[in-house]
Write a protein that binds this DNA or RNA. Sequence first.
DNA 1: GGGCAGGGTTGTGTATACAGAAGTCTGTAT
DNA 2: ATACAGACTTCTGTATACACAACCCTGCCC
Lengths: 229, 229
Amino acid sequence: MREALTAAASRRVTRPAPLRQAVYDALTELIVNGSLKPGQHLVEAELAEHLGVSRQPVREALQRLQTAGWVDLRPAQGAFVHSPTAEEAAQLLGVRAVLETYSAQLAAQNAKPEDIARLDELQLEGIAALADGDVERLVSANTALHDFITAVADNAVLAELIAQVGQKVRWYYTPIAKPRGKEAWNEHTQLIRAIAKGDAHQAGEVMRKHTERTTEFYRKQIAARANQN
Amino acid sequence: MREALTAAASRRVTRPAPLRQAVYDALTELIVNGSLKPGQHLVEAELAEHLGVSRQPVREALQRLQTAGWVDLRPAQGAFVHSPTAEEAAQLLGVRAVLETYSAQLAAQNAKPEDIARLDELQLEGIAALADGDVERLVSANTALHDFITAVADNAVLAELIAQVGQKVRWYYTPIAKPRGKEAWNEHTQLIRAIAKGDAHQAGEVMRKHTERTTEFYRKQIAARANQN
DNA sequence: GGGCAGGGTTGTGTATACAGAAGTCTGTAT
DNA sequence: ATACAGACTTCTGTATACACAACCCTGCCC
C-alpha cells in the first residue's frame, strides 16, 4: 500500500503533458520523416480526427510549427508544410557553419577531462558504424557527437539555435544526400584533439573547415543530381 | 466610380490580418516596452478582455510567444513572461556577435554601390543623433544600420535569427545600459569602408571587435550597477 | 465555345461552454 | 495557536458551435 502510494506520487510529478505538446511532436515527426510532404495542405479537422483530439490542440500546435518554420500559415487558407527552396537550404548550411564554429570554440574553453573521454567514445562509435556500413547508425553517431560538443559549450541560447537549424538541415539533406565518410571522422579526430588542448581558435578553425567541406559535399551531390535530370 | 473600385481592389489585396497576429504583435510590444514585467502571470481572460477579443486568439498568440521565447507556458498554470537570467543575457550577446560577424562578411561580398550610399546615409544619421544627444534616435539609428547590413547580406535564415536575438538583447539591455557613443560610430565607419572594399574578412573582423566591445561595455555597466547595490 | 456570374461546399476564424486541475481560504481539531 | 482537511474559487485545457471567407462547380449569357 505504502509502496503503491509512493509510486503513484512519483508518477504524479510528471506533467499532465498537454495534448498540444503531443500533437506538436507528432506533426514534427510526420514532417521530418516525410509522411507529410512539402506544400501539402494540412486540414485541421483531418489531423484532429487522425490524432483523436479536437481541432483546438491541433491549431495551437500549428501556431508553434509556424514560428519554428515547419509550416506556413496562410490566412483564411490554413496550414501548408513548408517548402524549402534550394537557396534557403544553402543559407541554412552557412548559418549552421558559423554556429557550430562558435560551439566548438566554447567547447574547447569549457571541456573537462570526462568530457574528452565521452567525445572519444562517441568518436569510436562513429568509426564502428563506418566500418559496418550502417548509414543510419552513422548519421545518428554524427548527430550525437555534434550535440555533445554543443552541450559542452554550455550556452543554452546557442544550443537552441543549433537544434533548430540542424533539424531543418537534416530534413532537407538526408533524403537527397548520403553522409560523408572516413574523411569526416578524421576531421572529428582533429577537432577532439583541439578541444582537449583547450585551443579555442584551432577548434573553431577545424570545425569551420569541417562544416565547409560538408557544405561542399552536399552541394556537389545536388549539382550532380540536377545534371542527371 | 472606376477609381473607387480600383482603390477598393488594391485594398482587397491586403490580408484580412487574423486577430492572432494582431494579438501577437500587441503582446510582444507590451513585453518589450516593459508594460508586462518578467515573471508576471498572464491571465488569458484578462488579456482577451483588454484587447477586446475572445480567449481563442489570445491562446494562439501565447503559443507563438512561447516558441519565440518571450513567455514560458507552464502546464495547467498558464503563461508567464520570461525572466531572462544574467547568464542567458550574456549568452545572447555571444551568439549575436557571431551572427553579426557572419552578416558583415556576407554584406561585404554582396554590397552594390547604392547599398554603400545608403550605409553612408545611415551613418550620417547616427552621427547627427549623437551630436543632438538624442538617445532614442541614436538607438534607432544603430538598429537601422545593423538591420540594413543584414538586408544586404541577403540571407533570410540569418536575418530571422538576428532579429530574434537582437530584439531579446534590446529588451534585456536597453533598460539597464546606456548606448555606446562616438567610439561605436567610428567603428561603423571602418565597417562600412571594409564592406565598400568588398573585403569580407576585414568586415567580419571589424564587426567582431565592434560587437565584442559592445558586450564589454554592457558587462561593465552591469558590474558597476551590481557593486552599487 | 468561352467567359462570367451565381450558388454550393469546404475549411478556417472566432466565440462560447464545460470539465478538471491548481491554488486559496476557512473551519475545525489537536 | 497551529496545522491539517475540506470546500471553494479561479484559471487552464478541451470540446463544440457558428459565422464568414475562399474555392469549386454548374449553368447561363455573350
